Simulated assay, not measured.
Amino acid sequence: MKMIRNGYQDYEYLRLADKAGHAAQARAVANGLYPSMHVAAPSPAAIENARIRLAALIGGAGS
């Protein structure tokens, strides 16, 4: 259940970054974590870093 909730929250981060006008940067963050369907095992630290970067985009610090 925790993984499902985290996935949903990550999707919301991406959507909010898109709404804030940072779609390209948000996509770059996502593609950095998951470069292909066959390479999908980022470290927990990489995931947390991506969340921090997305939060900065949403908050306006990533402009």
Rank of each mutant, 00 (worst) to 15 (best):
A17H: 02
A46V: 02
Q25T: 02
P44W: 15
N31K: 11
L57M: 08
L16R: 12
Y34H: 11
A20E: 01
G59C: 01
P44K: 12
Y34Q: 07
D18S: 10
M3A: 14
A55C: 03
V29Y: 00
R5D: 10
A61C: 12
G21I: 06
N6W: 09
R53V: 05
P42K: 11
A61F: 15
R53D: 10
P42V: 14
A30W: 05
I58G: 01
R15S: 12
G62Q: 07
A17W: 05
A30E: 07
G59F: 01
A46I: 05
A50M: 05
A30P: 02
A61T: 09
G7M: 12
M3K: 15
A23W: 04
M1C: 15
K19I: 11
I52R: 04
A20I: 00
I4H: 11
A28S: 06
K19P: 05
L16T: 03
G60M: 03
H38A: 14
G59I: 00
A41I: 08
A17S: 06
Y13C: 03
I47L: 13
R27P: 05
G60S: 02
Y13E: 08
I52N: 12
P44C: 12
G59T: 01
P42H: 09
N6Y: 14
A45P: 11
Y11V: 06
K19E: 14
R27T: 10
A24N: 04
Q9R: 15
P35F: 10
M37W: 14
A20M: 07
L33K: 15
G32V: 06
R51M: 03
N49C: 04
E12V: 15
A56K: 01
A61S: 13
K19A: 09
A28H: 03
P35W: 09
M1T: 09
S36K: 08
A55E: 04
V29L: 02
H22G: 06
A24D: 07
A46S: 13
G59P: 00
L14K: 00
R15H: 09
M37C: 06
Y11K: 14
M1Q: 11
K19V: 03
M3Y: 10
A40S: 12
L16S: 10
R53Q: 15
H38I: 07
A30V: 04
D18C: 08
A26M: 04
L54Q: 01
H22K: 10
R53H: 04
V29K: 00
S43F: 12
A46C: 13
A55M: 07
E12G: 01
K19W: 13
Q25K: 10
G21M: 05
A20G: 00
I52P: 02
E12C: 06
G60H: 04
M1P: 11
K19D: 14
G7H: 13
A20R: 03
I4G: 07
N31I: 04
N49W: 05
G62C: 01
I58W: 00
A26W: 01
Q9T: 11
A61Y: 14
H38E: 15
Y34T: 09
H22N: 09
H22Y: 07
A56P: 04
G7Q: 15
A45V: 15
R5E: 13
R51H: 03
A23H: 07
S63P: 04
M1Y: 14
M37S: 10
G32Y: 03
A41V: 13
A17M: 02
I47R: 08
R53T: 10
L14Y: 08
G32R: 04
